[in-house]
Design a protein around this nucleic acid. Structure first.
Lengths: 193, 193
DNA sequence: GTCTATAACGTGATAGAC
DNA sequence: GTCTATCACGTTATAGAC
C-alpha cells in the first residue's frame, strides 16, 4: 500500500477539482478511502493544513508536467500541443476542472495560507508559456500579434475558463478554444480537432 | 423602499459572485439586509428556488446590457470595447467574478434546476459576440484568424478566466488579457490600458 | 495509525404568534 | 411580511481507547 498520507492527498485533489474546496468534506474522503474521519485528521489536523498541502501538490505536479514536456518535445509548437493536450485531460472524465481555477473561484472563502499558495502555480505556468511562445516566434513557428507575455496570460485565462465551460456544456467548448488558439498563433494549418 | 424580494435577490447576487453558491448563507443576507432568515425563506422557500431566480436575474441583466450596447454603440469595434469595459467592471471592487464563472465552478454541487439555468446566459453572450465579430470583420474593422464562432467562444472563456485571475492576483491580469485580445483582433493600434 | 464517541457550531428549513 | 423559537442535519475538530 502506498503512503496513506499521499493517498488522502490524491483523493482530496480529485474532490477539490470536482466539487470545490468548501464542498468536499472529511466524510467524502473517508468514504472513498475506507477509513474514518478521525484518521484523516491525524494526517492533516485541519482543513487549512490539507489545503496548503494541496497547493503544494498542484505546484509540484505542474512543475513535473512542464519539465516532462521540455524533456520529450523539442520544438516550441510541439511543446504547446503537448501542453494543452495534457491540460485538457483533466476534463476527460467530465467532472473536473483545473486546480487553479477551482481555487480561484473560492478565493474569498479560502484560508489565507491556501489562497497564497495558488499564485505560484499560475506564475510558473505563465513563465513557461511566455518562453515557449517567444522561442517559437523567433524560430518562425508562431505568428501572433502582441507580446509573448500578454499572450501567455491570455492563454492561461482562456484555458481556465474553457475547462469550466467544458464541464458544464460539453467537451466541444474546450476543443473550439484550442482550435481558435492555434489559429491565433498561426498554427491553423495543423490538424484540428 | 423597493420591492423586498428584489432587494434580497440583488444582495444574493453580490454574495454569489463574491463567495460562491455554497458559501453564502441565509444568515449572510439577513445580516446585510437587517431582516431575519425566516423572512427570506418566506420569499424564497428553498435555496434552490433562490438559485433559479438568480440565474434568471443574470440572464436578464446580460440581455439588458447587450441591448444597451447595441443601442448606444454603432460600430462593431465600439460595441466590443463597451462589452469588455462593462464585463470588467464587476471586478472593480476586487471581490467579485462573473456570475457564469462562479456558478460553473460549483457546477457539480448545484441543484439541477440551477445548473440548467446557466447555459442560457453564456449562449446569448456567445451569439452576440459572434455577430459583432462577423460584422466587424466584414466591415474591415477586425482582422483575425479562424471563425467568428470559435473566436466568440475563446473570448468568453478568456474573460471568465481573466476575472478569476484578476480577483486573486490583481486587476492587471484583466488588463493584459484585454490588450492581447485587441491585438488578436487587429485592434492593437488603439489606445491600450 | 486507526478506531469510537462526542463536542461545538453553522446550515437550510419549518411552525406558529403577531 | 416579519418575527421568535426550534429542528434535523452535516460540518470540522478533539479526546481517549486500542
Amino acid at each position: 500500500m502506498i503512503d496513506r498520507k499521499t493517498q488522502i492527498l490524491k483523493a482530496a485533489a480529485d474532490l477539490l477539482q470536482a466539487r470545490g474546496f468548501t464542498s468536499f468534506s472529511y466524510q467524502d474522503r473517508s468514504d472513498r478511502l475506507g477509513i474514518t474521519k478521525a484518521s484523516i485528521h491525524h494526517h492533516f489536523p485541519s482543513k487549512e493544513d490539507l489545503g496548503v498541502a494541496l497547493t503544494t501538490l498542484f505546484r509540484e505536479r505542474q512543475e513535473a508536467m512542464l519539465a516532462d514536456i521540455d524533456a520529450t518535445c523539442c520544438r516550441p509548437s510541439d511543446r504547446l500541443e503537448a501542453f494543452w493536450e495534457r491540460s485538457g485531460s483533466v476534463c476527460d472524465d467530465g467532472d473536473k476542472i483545473c486546480a487553479v481555477g477551482a481555487l480561484h473561484c473560492e478565493f474569498n472563502v479560502l484560508p489565507q495560507r491556501v489562497a497564497r499558495g495558488i499564485s505560484l502555480t499560475l506564475d510558473l505556468t505563465r513563465r513557461w508559456l511566455q518562453r515557449v511562445l517567444a522561442d517559437g516566434r523567433e524560430l518562425g513557428e508562431f505568428d501572433f500579434a502582441g507580446s509573448a507575455h500578454d499572450q501567455a496570460i491570455l492563454i492561461t485565462a482562456a484555458l481556465q475558463g474553457a475547462l469550466q465551460q467544458a464541464r458544464a456544456e460539453g467537451p466541444e467548448c474546450w476543443d473550439r478554444v484550442i482550435v481558435q488558439l492555434r489559429a491565433t498563433l498561426g498554427l491553423a494549418h495543423r490538424v484540428t480537432v
